[in-house]
């Protein structure tokens, strides 16, 4: 049976995702051959800004229009135990009435940047399985969540009028990555001020896109249609300007980097490093050691070989 047929079965697809999340690179490369070019939408914003609710509302609308929706929700892992509680589904319960949606919750498994090492690979699985619109909900704890920029065609940045800018924009550095800015929970604070402020700050991007600012009350479905239109507008822009191709390229490059990094991080977290530390103190050349570590990435720690 070929892989596209297997992917038709949700249970089998889910198992493929598990294998990929655990580092099966052969499977990752096989999947990559089958991607179809789904629209990928990243959703980012601090906790409490309403990411899950917004994704749920947008998905409901798109599902009604006949789309197939994939959702990946990322939550942080515990730095102490490596475990995680993944709770994005609590607010997505409404989507259970649709057949054509697949939700997967993942943990960052120690990675910083807002995604896990293999998020891009999991997006590929959904893409290959024919989910034409894929949402990625980033962690949202906000220090430096720009990884999603490498994968998503469109990035939605959520803000709420009730939280100060210092929390929402400056720390997260998100003024640079968004295509659509949402001021959510507009009924709970000075939303119009926030919108004015955003419109003032947000300049046309180098690629020619002027970021849009939209006011919403997602729980009450206010502004959802506007976002759907904005998404379509941006999607046309992506396809017309050649951004689409460039994004596939950056997604693959990002994937490669993450696979390499994952192995490097594993090595750096293992006991091997202790002996290197000793060697450096004893005077061994730094350059030599770094080369040795990089060789290890390709060697015993290679191909799906997790220590």
């Amino acid at each position: 049976m070929n892989i596209e047929e297997i992917l038709l079965d949700k249970k089998e697809m889910s198992k493929i995702m598990t294998r990929i999340e655990n580092g099966d690179e052969d499977l990752s490369s096989e999947i990559l051959k089958h991607i179809k070019g789904a629209r990928i939408i990243g959703v980012t914003g601090v906790p409490g800004s309403g990411k899950s609710t917004l994704i749920t509302k947008l998905s409901s609308r798109l599902l009604e229009k006949g789309h197939r929706i994939g959702i990946i929700g990322v939550d942080p892992s515990s730095p102490f135990s490596g475990g995680a509680v993944l709770g994005d589904r609590v607010r997505m319960k409404d989507l259970n009435r649709f057949e054509n949606v697949f939700i997967r919750s993942i943990s960052t498994r120690g990675k910083i940047g807002g995604l896990s090492y293999y998020t891009a690979d999991l997006v590929n699985v959904l893409d290959a399985a024919g989910y034409d619109t894929i949402f990625i909900e980033t962690v949202g704890t906000g220090q430096d969540e720009v990884d999603v920029f490498n994968i998503a065609h469109t990035i939605i940045v959520l803000q709420v009028p009730t939280l100060g800018d210092e929390v929402q924009i400056i720390k997260a550095g998100q003024l640079e990555i968004g295509d659509i800015y949402i001021v959510n929970k507009a009924d709970q604070g000075p939303a119009d001020e926030k919108i004015k402020e955003l419109n003032l700050i947000l300049k046309k991007r180098e690629n020619g896109w002027q970021p849009l600012v939209i006011k919403t009350v997602a729980v009450k479905n206010v502004g959802i249609e506007e976002i759907i239109n904005a998404l379509d507008e941006h999607w046309n822009f992506v396809k017309e300007t050649g951004l689409f191709k460039r994004k596939i390229n950056s997604r693959i490059k990002y994937m490669l980097k993450q696979h390499a990094l994952e192995k490097l991080d594993k090595i750096m977290e293992s006991e091997v490093v202790d002996s290197y530390a000793e060697q450096i103190i004893k005077g061994r050349n730094m350059h030599e050691i770094v080369n040795e570590i990089i060789n290890k990435v390709g060697g015993e720690y290679g191909k799906g070989g997790i220590v």
Binding site: F80, S81, G83, G87, R89
Partner: peptide, 21 residues
């Protein structure tokens, strides 16, 4: 939360779930 401390990945869905969910 305690299973997270034990290193598990826990998917928590909240209250009022149907068997189908």
């Amino acid at each position: 939360r305690s299973l997270m401390d034990e290193g598990f990945e826990v998917i928590y869905t909240g209250i009022h779930q149907t068997a189908e969910d």
